[in-house]
Each structure stands twice: as C-alpha cells, then as structure tokens.
Design a protein around this nucleic acid. Structure first.
Length: 421
RNA sequence: GUGGGUGUAGCUCAGCUGGUUAGAGCACCUGACUGUGGCUCAGGUUGUCGGGGGUUCGAAUCCCCUCAUCCACCCCA
C-alpha cells in the first residue's frame, strides 16, 4: 500500500454511486417542487469571507479550516460550509436588485479539518437551501417542512425535528449575560466542561449529560422567557405553522448552533440511527449576516443537510431505492478474423443508441459469456467464423437463453425493439 | 485537540501461552463442455501478517514509535 487517500476522505466506488444518484436526483426534484434554483460557487474562497461570516471564535474558524496561501500570496480557504459562499455570490451579482426573494439551493463538497469519526469526515457533501429576502416565520416553517419532505422522499424514518429561537441582537446578549450570571452562582455544582461552557457558550450547559449539571440548571432562566417581543412573536407563529403543517417537533431551549450568525429560528434534525454524530440536517435564520458582509439589510434563512449521514441512515434502515438496470450489450468475438466485423457492430450499435462493449483480450467464448452474464448484459451477440461467413450474427438473449440469427446490417434495428431502456 | 479499541489474501475473519512451508469461507481465474453464461464438480492465483525499529537462536504473535481506521469526548452534517 503506497499512497492512500487523505485522512477523513472517501472514495465513492461504482457500487455506491447508485445511492448517491438517488439522493442527488431527489435533491433536484424536491428543490424544483419548492421552486429553489441551483447555484454553484467555488470550492475555495477568500479566507476573510468565512472569518467575517462565522465569527473568529467559532470552532470552524478557529481550528477547522483548510487555509492556504496561493502563489499570488492570497489567503484562500476550502469552503467549510456553504452559506457564506452563497451570500457572497448573491451580493457580488446584486441578486437583491433582480428579485425580492431569492431562493437558491446547492449540492457539493465541504471541508473541515476535524478528527474523523463515525459520520464525520474532513470532506463531506451537503445539500442546502438559502432563501434570501423574507423575514416571515411562514418561510421558516416551510423550510422545516421542506427538509422533512425531502427526507420522506428518500424513505428515511426515525427523524426528529428540534427547534428553538436564539433571539436577535436586541435580546440575545441580555439573555446570555443573565444565564451566565445564574451559572456563576452554581459553579461548584457544574462539571469541568460546564464551567468552561459558562464562559464560552453558556447555552450549551443545558445540553450536558451529567445529572449534577442537569439539576443545577433546572431553575435557570430560559431563552423562551427572555426573548424580545418581536422574537417571541416570531417563534410562536413559527411553532403554530409547524403544527399546521403536521410536523412533529420538540422545542429544545438549549439548541444553539455552532455559528455566530444565527438569529431567531434555529433547528436541527436528529436521527436515532446515527451514533454520537446524530444531526442529519440543521439550519436557521441569519437576518444580520448579509449586512455584516457589507450588503444591504436583508433577512434570510437556510438549512443544510449531510449526504453521507443520509446514506448512513439509508444503510441502517435498509432503505431500498430504484437502480438503473441492464448493462451494455456484449459482442463476443474470439477468432481474430472476426474482430474487425465485431468492431463494426459495436459502432453501429452505439450509433443506434445501444450501449455495447467487446472483450479485446481474446478470451474464450465461454469466458466472454461469463463476463457478459456477470456485468448484466441483456444480450450477447455471438459473432464467429460461421456467422461471419454468412454475413449474419447470432443474438443471444441472456435471460431466456434463446438465440436468433440476423444479418449484420439489421442488428441495431432488431435490438432496438427488444431493449427496454 | 484528549482518551480507548482495531489493523493477517479483493472481502469477512481464524491463527492457543513466540517455533520452522501463514490458513478458511466468499470472490476471482481455468477446466469438465476443443463455439455458449447462471447450477454442480475439480483445479488454480493472490499476502513485504499496516509501516519502521527493538527483544530473541527464532516474531503475525512480546516491547517502542508511526500511519490508518473505528468508538467516545468536543463540535457538527
């Protein structure tokens, strides 16, 4: 074993690609149903974009970015998520001038330098959407509905939506301070992690699994009681609309996402089939991000979901999916003087839109049939001395074993009627 | 970044307390059928035992380092 793939990356081999296609096709179909249009942005961007978007102190920016200098001494970073890229493109092309509400989706790889683990890779793929230009909670609810619909179309089950409001610039700082002060009074009762969280990200303490910590925070002030009127109104309507759409969800006051730019609505979709990395998708509103990147003040919301984790759930639950059937027609020729005619047949079949291949390695007829059988060829064309001398070719249908002879010129035509594609 | 498990043929794994030629099943190839796949039967190929170093007369087996992978923490998709 010489050179191996970089740590935390994966090769997607031909056998697995069918699953990817199934997911990708579903992405495009569902996006179209909700009228989102695809956007493709560069794999790398100015490092500054991510620092400005996500906040210097976030895990992603402080320790997970693949950052490098190019030959022109620019600092570039492999995208660690997609929202900043989409917003950058939105601003760069003044999409806000073209329509009031811009609805975009993306599908592609993103990169984070993390220690690989089950469901966690250094390169993984995400499907996500960004809806830019509307502050209404109805949009928030529709996004949750959309992501759940998407999972439903893939045949996934065992998923749970958890939602929260993280407030806005008006009310969040006040709440964080309030909570931090409360936690400081309980500091001795908290575990070491939670003592650290108290300073760094107090809301996380709610998520601690230690019973002592759970007890300590049972009386702590809740976000829901400390939102400003606008935020709490937004959240109430959002929840009511989720109920209207029949989506089962739970409010989780401790849900706080890893990026600084979120405001108000935050949500995550959790799977019971994954290990510790149990979030399949998540998203939230980011009403201040565009302005902070130097654009106009435009509200927006988005979600992202990890393709690898989706595939893991499919695997776990044995989700079946449609696969493309039937291999190419195989042309079997084993005598050297027939090879030329065989190549001619290949060309005419392909011109007729029929996939075809021939074994150039001089295998016996037997081995060629074996190969054809294994690769799922529906038909094998047998072309040997006998047939060639008559200007004919034998068509063998693999499923029944029946054979018929047709003239060389008519092969394409005859097969075309028989192949269901 | 911290802690723990694992690494033997393409795949799944066996190999007892160090002992000479490293195994099984599946897969693959060939043949039985000198022009016909699947089934059956019979043969056959494949390994620097993850890599490096050490202990030893002798290492897949013991020790150290390293790499990869898995699991958990952290964080997230």
């Amino acid at each position: 074993m010489k050179i191996q793939r970089p740590r935390g990356t994966a090769d997607i081999l031909p056998e697995e690609v069918a699953r990817w296609h199934f997911v990708e096709d579903t992405v495009r179909r569902v996006a179209a149903l909700y009228n989102y249009r695809e956007i493709r942005t560069p794999i790398f961007e100015s490092t500054e974009l991510f620092i400005k978007s996500e906040g210097e102190s976030t895990d992603i920016v402080s320790k997970q970015m693949y950052t490098f200098q190019d030959r022109g001494d620019r600092s570039l970073t492999l995208r660690p998520e997609m929202t900043p890229n989409v917003i950058r493109a939105y601003l760069e092309h003044s999409l806000n001038q073209k329509e009031k509400l811009t609805k975009l989706y993306y599908l592609g790889p993103i990169f984070r330098y993390e220690k690989p683990q089950a469901g966690r890779y250094r390169q993984h793929h995400q499907f996500g959407v960004e809806a830019i230009g509307c502050a209404e909670p109805a949009l928030d609810a529709e996004l949750v509905e959309m992501i759940m619909y998407f999972y439903g179309e893939l045949g996934l089950a065992g998923l749970k939506a958890v939602v929260n409001s993280v407030g806005c610039t008006q009310c969040r700082p006040g709440y964080s301070a309030l909570l931090r002060n409360y936690l400081k009074t309980k500091l001795q009762e908290l575990c070491a992690d939670c003592q650290r969280r108290t300073e760094v990200n107090p809301l996380r303490v709610f998520d601690c699994k230690q019973p002592l910590c759970a007890a300590a925070i049972s009386q702590a002030p809740r976000v829901s009681d400390n939102l400003c009127d606008t935020c709490s109104g937004h959240f109430r309507t959002f929840c009511a609309l989720l109920e209207e759409s029949g989506i089962a969800y739970t409010v989780k006051p401790e849900l706080v996402r890893g990026l600084d730019y979120y405001t108000r609505t935050a949500f995550e979709i959790i799977s019971e089939d994954l290990g510790a990395q149990n979030a399949v998708g998540g998203g939230g509103r980011y009403d201040d991000l565009i302005e902070s990147l130097g654009g106009p003040s435009v509200p927006a919301i988005g979600f992202g979901t990890g393709i690898e984790r989706i595939l893991m759930i499919m695997e776990e639950r044995g989700v079946t999916f449609p696969t493309a059937g039937g291999g190419a027609v195989s042309v079997a020729v084993w005598e050297e003087e027939c090879a030329r005619a065989g190549r001619g047949v290949l060309r005419s079949l392909r011109r007729a839109g029929i996939g075809a291949e021939m074994d150039f390695c001089h295998g016996s007829l037997k081995s060629q049939l074996r190969r054809a059988h294994k690769s799922g060829s529906p038909f094998v064309l047998v072309l040997g001395r006998d047939e060639l001398s008559r200007g004919m070719v034998k068509i063998k249908e693999m499923s029944t074993g029946s054979e018929q002879e047709v003239s060389l010129e008519k092969v394409g035509e005859t097969l075309k009627g028989n192949i269901t594609k």
